[in-house]
Amino acid sequence: MMLLAIEQGNTNTLFAVHDGERWTAQWRAATESSRTADEYAVWLSQLLNMAGLQLGVFNACIISSVVPQSIFNLRNLARRYLHVEPLVIGENAELGIAVRIDKPSEAGADRLVNAIGAHVAYEGALIVIDSGTATTFDVVAPDGAFEGGVIAPGINLSMEALHNAAAKLPRVAIQKPQRVVGTDTVGAMQSGVFWGYIALIEGLISRIKAEQARPMTVVATGGVASLFHGATTSIDRFDPDLTIRGMLEIWRRNQKAS
């Protein structure tokens, strides 16, 4: 089995190759909703060649996207260049979990995939934090059900909004400041965003645990989650492979069902 997993967020799109036993390659591209299947194929074929692979080696493809206008082109990439019918989360993929929220259709594909990826790796009730364009805090029941959560602006989005809205505030890199109180503008901005997000994370985790009134393991993933490593004791595990693990599990469940 050679599986191509495509996980598309609002900022980046991940392409990952699984050979039936392990993940052998991963690449990221900036998400552009207007990118055509042909453009994806040119970009992907060059990277595959560097890894000693070709587009024709795949016999399976799974797609998770939170950008609806891109799904058409990603589906065409699989059909036209991989010669496979893709499994698309939210369309023809059975997830195998309960979605216990008021409007199950509103649950984002990325949040459901993360719930599955977390449940197959960790026991008990979970809080899954995904730090991307948005920062999400999702509750996963001990039986794997998705039970809702919290959506907050992402750390990069907040930093960009601060720069765009205030004429005198520069665009700065996100990093952990040595001090909470900044002694210049850049230091003050970095502290506000970094330690502000630590406070957001710690505060929401505390409130979720108090509301749920049960032991919960906190798992963090996403592009900027590693920035928080060592800065808070509220996060139990950092797991960069959470999303693609969930996609692999969904693909396996659908293979068994068919």
Rank of each mutant, 00 (worst) to 15 (best):
M216F: 12
A78I: 05
T136G: 00
G203K: 00
A210N: 11
G223M: 07
E147R: 08
K168L: 13
S33I: 12
L14F: 01
A51R: 15
A141C: 05
I127L: 12
I201S: 04
L204G: 00
G108M: 06
F15W: 10
T31Y: 05
A210T: 11
A188V: 12
F137G: 01
Q46D: 13
G187S: 13
G187K: 09
A41C: 10
Y81S: 13
N114L: 06
L200Q: 11
S226N: 12
R75Q: 15
A60E: 13
M216H: 06
L47F: 13
G132K: 09
A210L: 10
V66F: 03
Q26R: 15
Q212H: 11
T24E: 14
K168Q: 15
A134V: 09
T135R: 10
Q46L: 13
G230Y: 07
K209F: 07
F146M: 04
T136F: 05
W195C: 10
T133R: 11
V218N: 01
A60M: 07
H119L: 04
I174Y: 06
A121S: 13
K176N: 11
G154S: 05
G187A: 12
Y81H: 15
V181N: 01
F58E: 13
A37Q: 03
I198A: 10
P153D: 07
R100K: 14
D102E: 15
W23I: 15
A78K: 03
F58I: 07
I101Q: 02
